[in-house]
């Protein structure tokens, strides 16, 4: 596949005029050796720990001693009978699926706006995109200054209108959504840029033809824009799902998982079980649950959307 037009960065490469068959000659070593270092690194730092994690999840290891006892399925039984597990899984799903819906909805709206003829387009794009490059931990701290109870910027406004200040981060019904919101705010820019590129790739001819046929702008959006954007939707949904389901930094910065377990996700819970409670065997079991959840949800979304791409 020498599809040279697909890359925006492409510099034309002169292809040599002679296309004589190259003499097959052994030259030192086979170039497949070049990926051997990668096999070693990935096996040592990813595959081996992954398999070892499955083993540890069947033990009562405390995280530091030299011995660990095999306890069979006990960690998994504990996981499925502990009511907190469901709360934590629910939070993880809100972080993952909630941010995905918000980022894609708002990201698409912003992309449509930026695709219009307007002033300050480049500035707007830069500002919306800026949070993407900032560490999520720092982004969590910044929003902490806005949401915090004492002297938080949002409470200044609430009290200005004569209401009592609200302890938003300490409220279990609200803080999970605030964290979802911050994650959305931070990574909206990526969805916006990908949708913008998708929109700019749609030929104007389609819209002209549809206008001639008397199609309304909603009909045009539904029947032209949306189907042709499905490849961009696939990418955005899958990235946002994986990112949201493994959310960690923002939670640590804003609530540290509290109050109690209220805003805990699988990743922050694992961290606490391992480092604060020496419950490493159980933490490993939670890690495996998280792995399964992420793989199943993101693969399902990927396969479903790829099918839609084919239909479109």
């Amino acid at each position: 596949m020498n599809n040279t037009s697909s890359s925006p960065h492409l510099k034309p490469v002169e292809s040599p005029e002679s296309k004589k068959p190259v003499p097959k000659k052994k030259r030192g070593f086979h170039i497949n050796w070049l990926y051997v270092p990668v096999i070693i690194l990935m096996s040592v730092f990813i595959i081996y720990p992954f398999l070892n994690g499955v083993r540890i999840s069947f033990t009562n290891w405390n995280g530091y001693s030299q011995t660990m006892n095999w306890i069979g399925l006990d960690n998994y039984i504990r996981m499925f009978t502990d009511p907190n597990t469901w709360l934590i899984v629910k939070n993880t799903l809100i972080y993952g699926i909630g941010s995905t819906i918000l980022q894609n909805g708002i990201g698409l709206l912003y992309a449509i706006l930026l695709n219009k003829s307007m002033k300050f387009r480049a500035v707007t794009r830069t500002i919306v995109y800026l949070p993407v490059i900032i560490s999520p931990l720092i982004m969590g701290y910044i929003w902490y200054f806005i949401f915090q109870y004492n002297g938080g910027a949002l409470n200044d406004i609430i009290t200005l209108f004569g209401f009592e200040p609200a302890n938003l981060l300490g409220n279990p019904d609200v803080n999970v959504w605030l964290i979802t919101f911050v994650n959305t705010y931070q990574f909206l820019g990526i969805a916006m840029i990908i949708y913008l590129a998708g929109l700019q790739g749609i030929s104007k001819d389609y819209y002209e033809a549809a206008t001639l046929d008397g199609a309304s702008s909603w009909q045009q959006f539904k029947n032209i824009t949306l189907p042709l954007l499905i490849p961009s939707i696939t990418i955005n949904v899958v990235i946002n799902l994986i990112n949201g389901l493994k959310l960690f930094d923002v939670i640590i910065a804003m609530t540290n998982g509290g109050p109690g377990y209220a805003s805990q996700s699988l990743s922050t819970m694992m961290y606490q079980l391992y480092f604060a409670r020496q419950d490493a065997g159980y933490a490993a079991a939670l890690g495996n649950l998280m792995f399964l959840i992420i793989v199943i949800i993101s693969l399902t979304a990927l396969i479903y959307l790829r099918r839609k791409e084919v239909e479109a």
Binding site: Y35, V38, M42, F45, I46, I47, Y48, P49, F50, N52, G53, I56, G63, I242, L245, K246, F248, S267, M270, Y271, Y274, A280, A283, A284, G287, N288, M290, F291, I294, V295, S298, L299
Partner: peptide, 20 residues
């Protein structure tokens, strides 16, 4: 295989990786 490894979220193997 190389590309499939992308799907392993780093934090899920925190316990064994830290031990290693």
């Amino acid at each position: 295989s190389f590309v499939a490894v992308m799907i392993v979220p780093p934090l899920t193997i925190l316990v064994p990786l830290y031990k290693f």
